[in-house]
């Protein structure tokens, strides 16, 4: 019902509280981070220096900062590994859940578990599993022949091990959400297409290749974009498991951002890094909205 507003009913009141909250706590921040990024703000330094306009100095410092460059590289690798793993596993789970078998609804129920578990808890859980001696994942890796000594092996204290560990923990945590989206996508494909192709003699693989794959692609894109946003914007699991270490091997961008603000207390540099993140998010979101509108909303 697209009814005309009646006289005497102030319609803006319906939106006012939501807009007020969003405006004060989210949108105003964009102005603030831009302001911060052009000024000197180090909370640990003498007060009179703070608030001085420094032009593009913070941006220059950011772009030439080795820790920033390293964190971007790590984030790209982390994002690629975790999104590829998440989407592939999510696709497998969605295809499985779309089959009819006994306990199908139980299988879908299982998928809710990692989604409902907090990132912090997921991080603790995987750290525990990877403890030398007491961690069962170590024994699992030992029986597979990947590691030699479950009592001594400590995944989180080697760069490659720590990186793999945060990737696995992230895949564990984020796959169910992606799987649920892909499952919804699978269920939106009309049954008749498969029936018709069977009449034409299509097998399991050609049905996947010519029906499932093209019609599911928009949903896969949505999944990939969510994973990308997560890699750039979520630090919980990494903070808990490695805090960026050993060395800087897992210091992903959001962790670098957090440390710039609250360990170095450099709000000017932090502002510049935040602006960088906002621009990245807007570009990613542009693609997200485009694929949502192009394929999903009009469907």
């Amino acid at each position: 019902m697209q009814s005309k507003p009646r006289i005497g009913e102030p319609l803006y009141l319906y939106f006012l509280p939501a807009i007020a909250f969003v405006g004060v706590f989210l949108l105003a921040s964009i102005g603030d981070i831009i302001y911060l990024s052009f000024h000197y703000f180090r909370l640990a330094s003498p007060l009179q220096e703070n608030g001085i306009f420094v032009g593009f100095q913070n941006y220059w410092n950011l772009l030439t900062d080795g820790r920033f460059q390293q964190s971007l590289l790590t984030t790209v690798l982390f994002g690629l590994a975790s999104s590829a793993g998440t989407v592939l596993l999510g696709l497998a789970v969605a295809l499985l859940a779309n089959q009819s078998f006994k306990g199908n609804s139980f299988y879908v129920a299982i998928m809710v578990l990692p989604w409902a578990v907090a990132n912090v808890v997921a991080g603790r859980q995987w750290s525990f599993l990877l403890q030398p001696g007491m961690g069962l994942a170590n024994y699992f890796l030992f029986y597979l022949g990947i590691i030699a000594d479950p009592l001594k092996f400590s995944a989180l204290s080697t760069p490659l091990g720590a990186f793999s560990a945060i990737v696995v923990a992230t895949i564990w945590k984020s796959t169910p959400f992606i799987a649920l989206i892909l499952l919804a996508g699978l269920q939106s494909i009309p049954r008749e297409l498969y029936d018709a192709s069977e009449v034409d003699g299509a097998g399991m693989f050609s049905k996947f290749r010519y029906i499932t794959y093209p019609l599911l692609t928009p949903f896969v894109n949505i999944g990939l974009l969510f994973c990308g946003l997560g890699a750039m914007g979520s630090l919980d699991i990494v903070y808990i498991m490695t805090n960026g270490g050993p060395g800087t091997s897992t210091n992903i961008f959001p962790l670098f951002l957090y440390k710039t603000y609250f360990m170095a207390w450099d709000f000017g540099l932090g502002g510049a890094a935040s602006v960088f993140l906002m621009i990245f998010t807007m570009i990613t979101f542009f693609f997200l909205v485009r694929s949502l509108i192009k394929y999903v909303v009009r469907m």
Partner: peptide
């Protein structure tokens, strides 16, 4: 898509 970690300084 708003990244909360981007505005922790502001908040």
């Amino acid at each position: 898509a708003f990244p909360s970690v981007g505005i922790i300084g502001y908040l």
